[in-house]
Design a protein around this nucleic acid. Structure first.
Lengths: 106, 106
DNA sequence: TGTAATACATCATATCACGAAGTATAGGCG
DNA sequence: CGCCTATACTTCGTGATATGATGTATTACA
């Protein structure tokens, strides 16, 4: 996947990964892997950005003697996903613009 | 349209704008406007980048006593559009990942 | 003791969209 | 002529951001 194309999708993808239940860094990367691969440094940058934007909240909890940070989506985060669904219509229009055949005979 | 989301689409959009016939800066911006708005500085940056990547060639021609730069798509440029069509499948998968409802009952 | 997996964090770097500003021509209006 | 707008291309500085490299620390396994 083209890196530029990823940029607009990463934030919503991370939000989607914690939408149904709270999750943590390592698991988010694994869950997203089939769709988008991202490095740890990238993910934690994104998580911090989303936290600052109040699209998620963080809670530290112990798991197996080790501390984990669990991320929980907020209303604003859910709202961001809804916005993406709206943006999707524009993306579809762009896709059609890019793929339309005008030189052939259609 | 979210600026991050634009990033991956701008290049292919510009290529699509010159696909059917050679075009020039100002016209490209107008043709793309219904789909994606971009500033002149952005467009010329992209055109230069695409030229360096040999996805288009440039030809200077006079028009109404003024010089215009006409951009012509190359095989590599057409190839880039084809690649985008392949990437589109991944984007669709991401869209489904983001929009799937797991908390409801599906 | 050593290796790998888990888990999070910081820093430097490269890419890139964009506003601001500049250069230059053509045409309309008074 | 002077002024404005549209056309047409260019350069510069800035801010956003994905990522590799690197570091810290624990658990599990051989």
């Amino acid at each position: 996947m083209d890196i530029q194309l990823k940029r607009g999708l990463l934030d919503v993808c991370v939000l989607a990964a914690i939408k149904s239940e709270d999750s943590y860094g390592y698991k988010i990367i694994k869950d997203m892997k089939p769709y988008i691969e991202l490095s740890e440094s990238t993910l934690y940058t994104i998580l911090k950005r989303l936290e600052m934007a109040k699209m998620l909240t963080v809670r530290t909890a112990e798991h197996g003697g080790r501390l984990r940070k669990y991320y929980h989506i907020t209303e604003a985060g859910l709202q961001r996903i809804e916005e993406f669904k709206e943006e999707w219509k524009e993306i579809l229009a762009i896709y059609q613009f890019v793929t339309k055949e005008d030189g052939e005979h259609g």
